[in-house]
């Protein structure tokens, strides 16, 4: 990326959303010397493996969590089955919360 052409620096800043901070926290925990489940250079490689399109289509922490989950699958820390089931569970739980919110 260094040295490539690009437009002016847009001096944007945003408050980090809770899920972004949690993604940051997951990485810090996984890469802590105590756990050493993954290293920062592995994260970078996994982000690059998402392909050039990911840089345009995903935002910063979307790339992180996508790369973190790919690394965890690669390393066998979690399985595709587990992840799929858990994502369905999280979605269902959240939809139920929303329904309760609309009713209440």
């Amino acid at each position: 990326m260094g040295g490539l052409d690009a437009g002016p620096v847009q001096r944007i800043e945003h408050e980090y959303a809770p899920w972004e901070k949690r993604t940051d926290a997951i990485l810090r925990l996984l890469s802590s010397p105590k756990r050493a489940v993954l290293q920062i250079d592995e994260l970078r490689r996994a982000i690059e493996d998402l392909g050039p399109g990911a840089y345009d289509e995903l935002n910063y922490y979307e790339r992180w969590i996508a790369a973190i989950s790919n690394l965890l699958l690669e390393k066998g820390v979690i399985t595709v089955d587990e992840l799929g089931r858990k994502m369905a569970e999280v979605t269902a739980r959240h939809e139920a919360e929303r329904a309760r919110g609309r009713a209440g």
Partner: peptide, 9 residues
Amino acid sequence: LELAVAELL
């Protein structure tokens, strides 16, 4: 994905 990964870990 974030919530699912955190819960699994």
